[in-house]
């Protein structure tokens, strides 16, 4: 039950960011890039992954060496990956609350949805903000097909830009078209792999994603100074 005005000032608790998108678009790969980038900015992180009936993605993140394995929880979504992030997010809420309790001072929980279709969206009871990850290999017409994930997400990420020439996609054009379709909502392109490729000058797009997360959700001191 939400109470409009508790008469105390409670800390807001860690922010929660959802990462959704079709199967294999690079959601886990993006998390593997975001972990060091966010940790480097002093953000205390935890991760929840959703898979159908395994903890495959959670195990992959735990073994990555990028984060304390205890900070990674798996939720098994059963046959309906969108149900556990929208209609009935109980399992994910419980996992998030466990992490809140286990790691006081946590700033952010990243929540990866199980791979789904273009219709998946997150409940705002579960996450504060969510991104939808697609990749160029799925075809340059994906943004045109719209769907709630493409249209309603707070950030649309178009991943695997490195593959664009091999799948006959014009990377600049797909970004331009996605921006036109989403009007004022942000769209960012990136390459989550191969690691470190062009990373130094920021052209892999990861830093721009972290900047946006900080500006819109985390409000670190640096982001608050960037009031423009």
């Amino acid at each position: 039950m939400t109470h409009p005005f508790p008469d105390f000032t409670a800390p807001a608790g860690p922010a929660r960011i959802g990462i959704g998108g079709p199967v294999g678009s690079g959601k886990t790969a993006l998390i593997e890039r975001l972990i060091p980038a966010l940790t480097g900015r002093g953000i205390s992180l935890a991760v929840i992954t959703n898979d159908l009936v395994t903890d495959e993605d959670a195990e992959r993140v735990r073994r990555s060496g990028l984060i304390d394995p205890a900070r990674v929880r798996a939720v098994e979504a059963g046959a309906c990956p969108h149900t556990v992030i929208r209609e009935d997010p109980t399992l994910n809420l419980a996992a998030a609350e466990d992490l809140d309790a286990a790691f006081p001072g946590l700033d952010l929980i990243l929540l990866e949805s199980g791979g789904d279709n273009l219709a998946s969206t997150f409940s705002l009871d579960l996450v504060d903000w969510w991104m939808f990850v697609i990749d160029v290999g799925q075809g340059d017409d994906i943004p045109r097909k719209r769907g709630p994930g493409i249209m309603q997400s707070d950030l649309l990420v178009i991943n695997k830009l490195d593959l664009a020439p091999y799948v006959h996609v014009d990377a600049a054009a797909i970004l331009r078209e996605a921006r036109a379709i989403r009007a004022a909502r942000p769209v960012l392109g990136c390459c989550c792999r191969p690691y470190g490729r062009d990373g130094a000058d920021g052209t892999d797009g990861i830093d721009a994603i972290v900047d946006l997360i900080d500006r819109e959700v985390l409000f670190t001191r640096a982001a608050r100074q960037d009031a423009g």
Binding site: T2, H3, P4, P6, A10, P11, A12, R224, A227
Partner: peptide
Amino acid sequence: SDLAIALPREVALVDRA
């Protein structure tokens, strides 16, 4: 003015808050 809102989960925004 630039506003950053971060509310506890049990609080809900309402009109005229």
